[in-house]
Write a protein that binds this DNA or RNA. Structure first.
Lengths: 107, 107
DNA sequence: TTAATGCATAGCCATTTGGGTATGGGATTG
DNA sequence: CAATCCCATACCCAAATGGCTATGCATTAA
């Protein structure tokens, strides 16, 4: 059972790739060549990273003539947010339990 | 410049490792042997993963006799939450900009 | 229609990574 | 004190990963 978090965390774990995603978050809708500047790697590498981000459901691409525009996918970070709040929830629940325990012990 | 997100995303990108972290979120304060069951890997591998989680600032360990208890670090997910909301922010800002643009065009 | 541009795919290679077994040291139990 | 248990470190190995160059296919520009 491969969780959806797998692809997300994997995709964002590489600095170059996360940099591409961040740039798309800031500037949105950019061509591959447009992303090439700050990436610091060759064009094929950028393409490869974008494909991974796309597979993870983080970005989408749109063809226009000989250009390919990439942009952040709608609800890209939904899975990440959900997972994080679930984990935080467990954490808080345990503190609630501890809290209740202490209250009961206090009586 | 190695961002703090690097270690976090890296650490959580591996399913086995994320599984360990999730288990600690749910149950908190568990020994290495206690974690061994669900992990599905050998004890040395669990220890190695825990070390990586610890280095990433996600968990802490506490020695007690011959047992080592691991638990989720306070504010473990802070960095993750901050990064996510920052990215979401950029996204929303762009929509605000678009919104403003449309309003201005509307006049 | 030729030349140039944008981009993806295909190989190739060095490094990293996740897993295993072997081992040893400290703490507890018999 | 001997046996056992908990856990970390040291190696080793196959597979995955991230980078590169070469190349080819569209699309646009000359």
């Amino acid at each position: 059972m491969t969780e959806p978090q797998d692809a997300i965390f994997r995709a964002l774990s590489d600095p170059t790739r996360r940099g591409l995603f961040e740039r798309l978050c800031r500037n949105g809708d950019t061509t591959v060549v447009g992303l090439l500047g700050e990436a610091g790697v060759s064009q094929p590498v950028v393409s490869k990273h974008l494909k991974i981000l796309k597979t993870a459901g983080l970005v989408r691409d749109r063809q226009q003539g000989r250009y390919t525009y990439y942009s952040v996918e709608r609800d890209a970070l939904r899975t990440l947010i959900d997972w994080t709040s679930e984990m935080s929830g467990f954490w808080n629940d345990r503190f609630d339990d501890l809290d209740n325990l202490l209250k009961r012990m206090d009586q």
